[in-house]
Nucleic acid binder design. Structure first.
Lengths: 334, 334
DNA sequence: ACTACTACTGAAAACGTTTCCAGTCAATAT
DNA sequence: ATATTGACTGGAAACGTTTTCAGTAGTAGT
């Protein structure tokens, strides 16, 4: 069943059918009705390849995410997916491994899938201008805030929280509760990831509050996985260092750490207070409930797509949206 | 940059270039080298639309999932995604809402995306043969086991656990620990979902162990969300019924319930033992650690794709794979 | 020297759309 | 009555591939 068949059955030309299907203005009411009747009668669906071939574009919006197993991202992606669909586009999701080059992946996708736009989730922060120049479609970054100012602000949009400030706030909460020996649990190699920015917020807070940065209280985990945080924390605890609070740069890290703390006889929050950033669903069901600075994940997804659609339609320019985190006071904080 | 340009630059015909790119045998070594040199020099990527148009097929494998926010599914999808990629295909992920018709979605996708195959995650169990006939490509169901025998076994593949038996086993563990008043936390409307099958396993176990089924101990949650389980359990607990164990049909349900139990002064496992099915990552970091029958999620994803690829390549027929669950003894069980 | 075969090649048709262009027809303006 | 406009229409080219088909050149067999 092709457009030709429809044309024949409706007694009009192929061009007319095409016009009807593309909502062109120059088509008579009667022709339109005839065509639509046949189309729905035979449940005709236009051939996407043929359409894309001649239009040299699709209705695809690419979403690139590094490590989809992280629930923080899936919560956002779920929202992005339904928003994209609602806007009449198609989401093309590409997950990449820890060592893959996301810019290269993106550039390939852009051509291969004829993307209208590209959304990045959880990218690194150390792109150069030249790298981003490879991307020739509207480009929106979620959870990425150009902290180091590498990028031309006009070249992309972003939707994120102020990671540095969120970390600062988290440490401040601990400080106000009287904690002074605050360990920090960070993840990822220090390559410009969100983890690094949050760590800098931690350092800034310590300095502001007159606390000496203690290298021994830095607990580096070389991934974003709960299991690795658990294991890393366990090993670190064996050193028997004195501390009274943990700031985890993500809920995942905190969840792993809490189990390790518990197994090492530390009660939370009596012996050690714990605070984190993210606000994933599971962390609310921990015991004790994790205190964390929640990111508005649904809103982030929604905003990202809204930005994207605005730019695709030429209605808006690239913008940078900073959303607010909100403290969820759990039981891991006195 | 089209195939014509490559042909011109390499001094061969368009046909030859096409043959090189498609690994046809009938092409000379010298021609092949010339073409490949130009291709890589100009970083040429063939136009997918044009290719799909003439071949009337793509390299897309569709994945349809109901509710992607459930971490149980995301863990499987992550695996499916990387396996599909590794096999040289492309994953096209479609999430659908609770009320969407997955068969209709699938059929549309099949045509629209020219799918080579379709993988279902978390489908209902009450399909009819006629419904499934709409799907004309290799069809693999993950976490669906044709419990009620509606479907022609030759018409699709499946990769799943024996849900009825897993539930039976869970109840048996509780029974062996001496529990007799076993509440069950189930989710979803009773429409043939996995929840229903597990519930039937619960009923069967009770019967086998000579325990009278008590309607009052059935706690229905009308979703698969943690939050709803928490709320539902909270309300149910207000009735003050006597019980000494909870069998939750999924980790999500258990996680919600555990928080409610805790807030109502019930200690786990002293007052109430809890067991579930799934084995999602977060449930291992609960306090107490949830005891649950773990599904081999990575293996399920891997098997599903393996099946799919085998069928696409015409090497294998539809098969039904039953994987084993494995008890993770946590602290929620004495 | 002829045939038969093999290995390779290129021309051209086809895939199903969109869109440009030229054209028809009726209505309106002159 | 004729020219001008406007609304609508259909023909045909174009998009970038794959694949069929016919063909050439070289080699081996007789």
């Amino acid at each position: 069943m092709t457009i030709k068949d429809i044309a024949r059955l409706a007694g009009v030309s192929v061009s007319t059918v095409s016009r009807v299907l593309n909502d062109h203005p120059d088509v008579s009411k009667s022709a339109k009705e005839k065509v639509l009747a046949i189309v729905s009668e035979y449940n005709y669906i236009p051939n996407t390849s043929a359409r894309e071939l001649v239009k040299t574009s699709s209705d695809n919006i690419g979403v690139v995410v590094r490590g989809m197993s992280n629930p923080f991202y899936t919560q956002i992606i779920t929202e992005i997916g339904s928003m994209i669909e609602k806007a009449g586009y198609t989401m093309v999701l590409q997950q990449i491994g820890i060592s893959d080059d996301e810019i290269h992946t993106a550039a390939t996708m852009e051509r291969d899938k004829k993307l209208l736009g590209l959304i990045f989730l959880g990218g690194q922060l150390n792109y150069t201008k030249e790298q981003v120049c490879c991307i020739n479609v509207p480009f929106v970054c979620c959870t990425f805030n150009n902290q180091y100012g590498n990028l031309d602000e006009e070249a992309y949009s972003s939707v994120c929280i102020d990671d540095n400030q969120a970390a600062y706030d988290a440490v401040q909460y601990l400080y106000k509760e009287g904690h002074r020996k605050i360990a920090v649990l960070l993840s990822g190699p220090e390559d410009g990831s969100v983890s690094q920015v949050r760590f800098e917020g931690y350092v800034r807070a310590l300095r502001d509050f007159g606390i000496q940065l203690d290298e021994k209280l830095i607990i580096p985990i070389h991934s974003y996985n709960i299991a690795d945080a658990y294991e890393g924390m366990n090993i670190w605890l064996k050193q028997g260092l004195s501390f009274d609070a943990v700031f985890a740069i993500s809920d995942n890290m905190a969840m792993g750490a809490m189990k390790a703390l518990r197994e090492n006889g530390k009660s939370i929050p009596q012996d050690v207070a714990v605070i984190a950033i993210d606000g994933i669903e599971a962390s609310e069901y921990m015991n004790p409930v994790l205190s964390t600075l929640c990111q508005p994940m649904a809103e982030m997804g929604k905003e990202a797509v809204k930005q994207m659609v605005g730019i695709i339609k030429g209605k808006t320019k690239h913008r940078h949206i900073l959303l607010q985190t909100k403290l969820r006071t759990g039981e891991s904080l006195r």
